[in-house]
């Protein structure tokens, strides 16, 4: 017979845990939590009022929603410009027919893609060397290394903190409107982003090959080149392609503040209530981004 000490636990018995000690601090904390929750709810309700959120307006239309909707599903697909009577408008200089909405927008979309390409390339070229200085595993151990690490990290953080659109506004003021300020904005912001990603890739390398290369008596530069670069290069390429992908979409937005590309015309059309032309913009953006998105993910799959 088992003794009373070895009784198995009764599965049906209810377990009452010992009382949790409750201090004054716990009570105050609970009160604070409820106060914060209540204040947040009040702020949330105020937010709906301030943003004039209203389903009825959305359905019935604020001003002229029927015309807008009609225009948006009837994009202007003209290849040459026509006047009110349907006659082809000729250029006063060349005598050739003036290009219509589609060729003009295709040209602007091309500029947008070129902006993203130049911006991304500049950021890759600059963040590549800097990222090695921002990798902890390469800079620890010496005072100069620490200084480089902290200052480059700081630069990356600052560049990342500014949204590209803010940078674009600043550069439009500095160098005037056009694609150039857009390129500068994309490049600067992307340096911050890519620099962080690159340096984190460097920080996660396998150190065994690095030690092996060091053991051959190689200089520090060649240790990085032979021991680290082959390990991180595929990631660097993938990150750069992904950044280009993001920058294409970003450069569309930048046009709205005057920094070149299709966004600039989109903004104009909307301001002039030319919704059929705006609709063409949307269509071209949609097609272009879809194609480029597909292309870049296809490329990235093959790089990995």
């Amino acid at each position: 017979m088992p003794t009373s000490e070895h009784k198995p636990p009764q599965p049906s018995a209810r377990i009452t845990p010992p009382q949790k000690p409750r201090t004054l601090r716990d009570s105050l904390w609970t009160g604070l939590k409820w106060t914060i929750t209540a204040l947040f709810l009040v702020y949330l309700i105020a937010s709906f009022q301030r943003t004039e959120f209203n389903f009825y307006t959305l359905i019935s239309g604020g001003k002229d929603i029927k015309r807008v909707m009609y225009d948006l599903v009837h994009p202007d697909l003209s290849w040459v410009e026509r006047d009110a009577d349907g006659e082809v408008v000729l250029s006063r200089k060349t005598g050739e027919p003036k290009p219509g909405t589609v060729p003009v927008l295709l040209d602007q979309m091309n500029e947008t893609v070129m902006m993203s390409l130049v911006g991304t390339l500049l950021s890759v070229l600059l963040s590549f060397p800097l990222s090695f200085l921002a990798a902890r595993n390469l800079t620890k151990g010496s005072a100069a290394g620490q200084l480089a690490y902290n200052s480059v990290r700081f630069i990356f953080n600052v560049l990342r903190a500014f949204p590209p659109i803010i940078l674009a506004i600043i550069f439009v003021f500095m160098v005037g409107p056009g694609p150039f300020p857009g390129v500068l904005a994309l490049a600067l912001h992307s340096i911050g982003m890519l620099g962080k990603l690159f340096s984190e890739a460097i920080e996660s390398v396998d150190l065994a090959p690095v030690e092996a290369v060091r053991a051959t008596g190689a200089s520090n530069n060649l240790i990085v080149w032979f021991g680290i670069l082959p390990q991180v290069l595929p990631q660097f390429v993938a990150f750069s392609l992904y950044r280009w992908d993001i920058n294409i979409r970003m450069s569309i937005i930048l046009g709205i503040v005057g920094a070149g590309g299709i966004g600039f015309l989109l903004d104009q059309y909307i301001r002039l209530f030319q919704y059929q032309k705006a609709s063409t913009c949307f269509l071209i953006i949609l097609v272009a981004v879809t194609i480029l998105d597909w292309g870049s993910s296809w490329l990235r799959e093959r790089m990995g």
């Binding site: 065994a208 092996a212 082959p230 595929p234």
Partner: peptide, 11 residues
Amino acid sequence: MIFQSFGLVPR
């Protein structure tokens, strides 16, 4: 020098 984990450079 040779190592337990070989230390060959990948790729």
